[in-house]
Design a protein around this nucleic acid. Structure first.
Lengths: 128, 128
DNA sequence: AACAAGTAGATGCATTTGCATGTATGTGGG
DNA sequence: CCCACATACATGCAAATGCATCTACTTGTT
């Protein structure tokens, strides 16, 4: 818990220094980029990111307001919708990665050897 | 990050099932129990728990309101204060531990061997 | 067809957080 | 001694979160 607090605080400091939006936005944008067609259903994003449903609903609102994603109707089910990443969203994700990647490297990568990183990942995987 | 979300969600679920206050309260109460005289200055708690100053300030308010700690004047410095754990605070901490301990064991301990736990702790220590 | 139960997502309200700033007290240099 | 600066803690306000509940739509059962 403490380790993640420290690491997260450092990464978020880097984000703020670069004038980027909250770190949490990255996860959603990333999942969308990964997904085929650059779109996912909200409940799919929820499952991938572990965001609570009501938090995701409002996070999507914010992303829409910033023009990073848009909502589209999901025809096969009137309750559903698509969340589609926009071009601006893709650009933003890349811009965020330019800070995020080096930040992870600096605050995590640089403190571990390759073998240690693998070990750590394996151990943490047991907790999921 | 994902591992901690999962583990934390499980532990918090146990807390809620037992009708306990937020998990975060435990850290403060624990630091106070550890400290000699059962008291610490706010900035000391801050350093030990990594809580932000403004969050701690208000967390203490809540603990005071619940009667788990009390504020006392710090004579040597008019700006300062002591945060002192009350008897009710000690009782509450013990009650929380009765859930917290087994919860940690169930969601973390049971998933790792002794050697793995030590390894994990050592690796995470490198990130602090 | 009708309806109970389930699922997708939104939202009102209270609480908590983050940020900036405020107040009060202490300290060190000239 | 004074004043700029630092430290300890609090707080107003905006934004995010958690919780419960709501609406809309779908599905399975009879």
């Amino acid at each position: 818990m403490r380790a993640r607090e420290r690491v997260l605080a450092r990464i978020e400091a880097d984000f703020k220094a670069s004038g980027l939006p909250p770190l949490g936005w990255y996860d959603v944008l990333w999942e969308l980029v990964q997904a085929e067609g650059g779109r996912l259903r909200p409940f799919e994003i929820e499952a991938r990111t572990l965001l609570a449903q009501y938090n995701l609903s409002r996070l999507i609102d914010r992303l829409v307001k910033e023009g990073l994603v848009r909502r589209e109707a999901f025809d096969a089910d009137g309750r559903g919708q698509w969340v589609v990443i926009t071009q601006a969203g893709r650009v933003m994700r890349e811009r965020m990665w330019q800070t995020y990647g080096p930040s992870i490297e600096a605050h995590v990568g640089a403190r571990l050897t390759e073998a240690e990183a693998r070990q750590l990942a394996a151990l943490l995987a047991k907790l999921r």
